[in-house]
Design a protein around this nucleic acid. Structure first.
Lengths: 198, 198
DNA sequence: TGTACATCAGTGAACGCGCGTTCACTGATGTAC
DNA sequence: TGTACATCAGTGAACGCGCGTTCACTGATGTAC
């Protein structure tokens, strides 16, 4: 990343995305205006238009980057566990929740209601599909090894997504009492795996 | 509900809440401005201030009503199943998801990030706690009958909430393909009860 | 039953503000020769 | 190595707009006598 020397910024596109993230994280999505982002980055209000066609394009870029980061997190979490399909699957789920808590602004833009407005950004939709695919593959692996029930990976993946997404949402929106994340996620995922029935 | 005859509205407070709901449902939360609500209801922009101190107060009223409706839905869904604790528990979960889909605007205001801004409305917090309590009681019943594992109802209730909230969020935010709700919810809850492991 | 009057629930104009976006511009950078 | 020039990435003023909220007001309603 180049330094700014005077007139030119160096990497304004990057800085604008980071600025948007910081604002959404601290003050919520509706506080994230183009002018405020420009202000925070220390640039004139018109400068962002050199890098983004309009405000939606900036938000879509945030969401897209979010999906790439999520995919990376999940892949990294799963990688060490070459021996056990179940462990891989579990780590994927924990990585999803950890990602949401570590990047609440990304998470919010990726899955919140705003992403309906962003329908016309096709590369964003593609990244979303890729994220789900990682989960789907892990389920199929588990089913092949007979450690997870059923034969339609879609059905189980949907359930797994429901669980991790529910936990992530409740945490990000502050509905659960603050507590160490990993024990909570592990406990919930264990219940999802074994069922709560007796 | 009285009819409007000329100058006075009849039940403007009610109409404002309904107007806010309709706008949030159709065009999202950030389109829900006090002026737009007043416009839709057919009243001057200053009129809402007769009934709400400010915009936040209107939103808080929406959230509070949402919790009361949710509680009512859950209680009604559980009531017929006096014979089976598990059936009661399951119907509670389905009612939660159905409520979210039927009242997406309520749901969004009740649990979305905006509700952090509304911290200083204590009656709202009370309603939220009451909603969770219904779930908690059902879990305790199931544990007493030994049909659900564990002895800390809090832990299981948190898991159950995670599942139904996850499903509700994904549906409301349009992340799952459109499909009949009850079969989907039943399938997911069955997995939650029995576990996805083999 | 009729009337005076207090109170309630609206109106409409105005305030200051910040927004997204456009425009003509200008300083910085890199390249051809 | 030096210079002319095209291109790139910013600036800052301006546009029209809708927002939340306030204010003095007025029409409708209900009550005391």
């Amino acid at each position: 990343m180049k330094k700014r020397h005077g007139y030119h910024h160096g990497d304004l596109r990057r800085a604008l995305i980071d600025g948007a993230l910081k604002i959404i994280e601290k003050e919520g999505e509706e506080a994230c205006t183009l002018r405020e982002v420009a202000r925070r980055v220390g640039v004139s209000q018109a400068a962002p238009y050199r890098h983004f066609a309009d405000k939606d394009a900036l938000i879509a870029a945030v969401a897209e980057e979010g999906h790439r980061l999520l995919q990376e997190s999940m892949r990294e979490a799963a990688a060490p566990h070459t021996h056990s399909e179940v462990a891989r699957f579990r780590e994927l789920g924990i990585a999803y929740v950890e990602f949401a808590v570590a990047h609440p602004a990304h998470f919010h833009v990726m899955f919140g209601p705003i992403c309906g407005t962003l329908g016309e950004h096709p590369s964003l939709a593609a990244e979303g599909a890729r994220s789900f695919m990682i989960l789907l593959d892990a389920v199929a692996d588990c089913q092949r090894k007979k450690v997870v029930r059923g034969d339609d990976p879609q059905e189980i993946a949907q359930f797994a997504w429901t669980v991790v997404h529910g936990l992530a949402s409740l945490l990000v929106d502050g509905q659960l009492p603050p507590q160490p994340l990993r024990p909570l996620a592990t406990r919930i995922l264990k219940l999802a795996f074994e069922g709560m029935g007796k």
